[in-house]
Amino acid sequence: SAPLYDAFAKWIPKQRNLPGLSIIRDYYQHPLYIQALAQSVRDFRAEHGGTEKLLMSFHGIPQPYADKGDPYADRCRITGQLVAAELGLAEDEWAISFQSRFGKQEWVKPYTDALLTEWAAQGVKSVQIMSPAFSADCLETLEELAIQNAELFLSQGGERYQYIPALNSRGDHLQLLNTLVQANLDALKQTLASKTN
């Protein structure tokens, strides 16, 4: 969402009549978000069975961003911990990682491809992977996670690799988004009502 903030910041100085603005900054630990993610895993496993490991892979950021105070990586870790707790997973049954790095600088770790390679070397045979940071599937989740990383894990000795789809248009995901928007609309209505009284 940072590019949207940047675009809005460039737009504001050109305006003479600014609208009210309410920004839903994030929802990385919202109970409905955690429940929807966990339920997507349960639903997938009910149809396809479980695996030795669940990997929650998030889009990465350069490590210097995190070093300068960007809270994104820490929030990803919190999301992962909350989803694992909601699912009742033991520590050795899940992990988080970061994908999509490019360039020569260090990015936040562990890297998804490196962790999958490490697990295969340790004898892990089955992995399910999801990408909680993506609300909808896209080229990155479908190509990088569902295809490229599957090929990597299987080529290193893994036997079963499954991608759990993003929340997409699941009813519980839409309920979360509706709840977030409605809370902001209710707050705006309350503010407007107090100004007119």
Rank of each mutant, 00 (worst) to 15 (best):
residue 1 S to K: 02
residue 1 S to Q: 05
residue 3 P to Q: 03
residue 5 Y to A: 15
residue 6 D to P: 00
residue 7 A to Y: 00
residue 8 F to K: 03
residue 8 F to H: 05
residue 10 K to A: 10
residue 14 K to S: 14
residue 16 R to C: 06
residue 16 R to F: 11
residue 17 N to I: 15
residue 17 N to A: 14
residue 18 L to F: 11
residue 20 G to Q: 13
residue 20 G to F: 12
residue 22 S to D: 08
residue 22 S to H: 03
residue 24 I to Y: 00
residue 26 D to T: 15
residue 26 D to L: 10
residue 26 D to I: 12
residue 27 Y to R: 06
residue 27 Y to F: 15
residue 27 Y to C: 13
residue 29 Q to F: 13
residue 30 H to F: 12
residue 31 P to N: 07
residue 31 P to Y: 02
residue 35 Q to R: 10
residue 36 A to S: 06
residue 36 A to L: 05
residue 37 L to K: 04
residue 37 L to N: 06
residue 37 L to S: 03
residue 39 Q to K: 14
residue 42 R to C: 01
residue 43 D to F: 09
residue 45 R to P: 00
residue 45 R to V: 08
residue 46 A to Q: 09
residue 49 G to Q: 04
residue 49 G to A: 06
residue 50 G to F: 01
residue 51 T to F: 01
residue 52 E to K: 07
residue 53 K to V: 07
residue 54 L to Q: 00
residue 59 H to P: 09
residue 59 H to T: 12
residue 61 I to Q: 01
residue 62 P to C: 05
residue 63 Q to I: 11
residue 64 P to H: 09
residue 70 D to P: 00
residue 74 D to M: 12
residue 74 D to T: 08
residue 75 R to G: 09
residue 78 I to D: 04
residue 80 G to M: 08
residue 81 Q to L: 12
residue 82 L to T: 08
residue 82 L to Q: 08
residue 84 A to S: 04
residue 86 E to V: 14
residue 88 G to P: 03
residue 88 G to V: 12
residue 91 E to I: 14
residue 93 E to D: 15
residue 94 W to S: 06
residue 95 A to G: 10
residue 95 A to Q: 06
residue 97 S to N: 09
residue 98 F to P: 01
residue 99 Q to A: 02
residue 100 S to R: 00
residue 102 F to P: 00
residue 103 G to M: 02
residue 104 K to I: 15
residue 105 Q to G: 12
residue 106 E to N: 12
residue 110 P to R: 04
residue 111 Y to W: 04
residue 112 T to Y: 01
residue 114 A to H: 12
residue 116 L to K: 03
residue 117 T to L: 05
residue 123 G to C: 13
residue 124 V to W: 12
residue 125 K to L: 10
residue 125 K to Y: 00
residue 125 K to W: 11
residue 127 V to T: 07
residue 129 I to T: 01
residue 130 M to W: 05
residue 130 M to F: 13
residue 131 S to E: 04
residue 132 P to Q: 03
residue 132 P to I: 07
residue 133 A to T: 15
residue 133 A to H: 00
residue 134 F to Q: 02
residue 135 S to M: 05
residue 135 S to D: 01
residue 136 A to L: 03
residue 138 C to D: 14
residue 139 L to M: 06
residue 142 L to H: 03
residue 144 E to W: 02
residue 145 L to A: 10
residue 145 L to E: 07
residue 146 A to W: 05
residue 146 A to H: 03
residue 147 I to Y: 12
residue 147 I to A: 07
residue 148 Q to C: 10
residue 149 N to C: 02
residue 150 A to S: 11
residue 150 A to R: 10
residue 151 E to N: 13
residue 151 E to H: 07
residue 151 E to P: 05
residue 152 L to N: 06
residue 154 L to H: 10
residue 158 G to A: 04
residue 158 G to H: 06
residue 159 E to Q: 07
residue 159 E to A: 03
residue 160 R to G: 04
residue 160 R to S: 14
residue 161 Y to A: 00
residue 161 Y to V: 01
residue 165 P to L: 11
residue 166 A to S: 14
residue 168 N to E: 12
residue 170 R to K: 08
residue 171 G to H: 06
residue 172 D to H: 02
residue 172 D to C: 06
residue 173 H to W: 13
residue 175 Q to W: 08
residue 175 Q to N: 12
residue 176 L to K: 11
residue 182 Q to P: 02
residue 182 Q to C: 06
residue 183 A to F: 08
residue 185 L to V: 15
residue 188 L to H: 13
residue 189 K to C: 15
residue 190 Q to N: 15
residue 192 L to V: 14
residue 195 K to E: 13
residue 195 K to L: 14
residue 196 T to W: 02
residue 196 T to A: 09
